[in-house]
Design a protein around this nucleic acid. Structure first.
Length: 111
DNA sequence: GAGCAGGAGATCC
DNA sequence: GGATCTCCTGCTC
């Protein structure tokens, strides 16, 4: 016969859409993830200038809520999410735009 | 009133 | 040990 099919092990399931290991996703990755699906998330986060990787958080409450769900952090809010974004300044991952605007950030590395 | 900047201790993996 | 999370003080829009 052919090789064993091993169906009991690595069978992809619908639950794999949010596997456990993505709970350790980084915030900047999560934001890009939302920006990659404007059909689903442009109401709460969208590109202002895709070329320059400048984006705007249109609904801070909603984005924080989604982040809290992803990280299993029910007490997450924009105050704390934005603090984490600020940690990226020194790391050179995200920065504020030249002319600072509320809720507008920019990925340092072009997307 | 909501965002923004950053220090600092706590916590999770 | 890094990456948040949490909390806070002061400042700005």
């Amino acid at each position: 016969m052919g090789p064993p099919l091993d169906l009991g092990r690595a069978l992809p399931s619908p639950a794999m859409i949010t596997p456990n290991h993505t709970a350790s996703i980084h915030l900047w990755q999560f934001l890009k993830e939302l920006l990659l699906q404007p059909e689903a998330y442009s109401h709460c986060i969208r590109w202002i200038d895709r070329e320059k990787a400048i984006f705007k958080i249109e609904d801070s409450v909603e984005v924080a809520r989604l982040w809290g769900i992803r990280k299993n952090r029910p007490a997450m809010n924009y105050d704390k999410l934005s603090r984490s974004i600020r940690q990226y300044y020194k790391k050179g991952i995200i920065r504020k735009t030249e002319i600072s605007q509320r809720l507008v950030y920019q990925f340092v590395k072009p997307v």
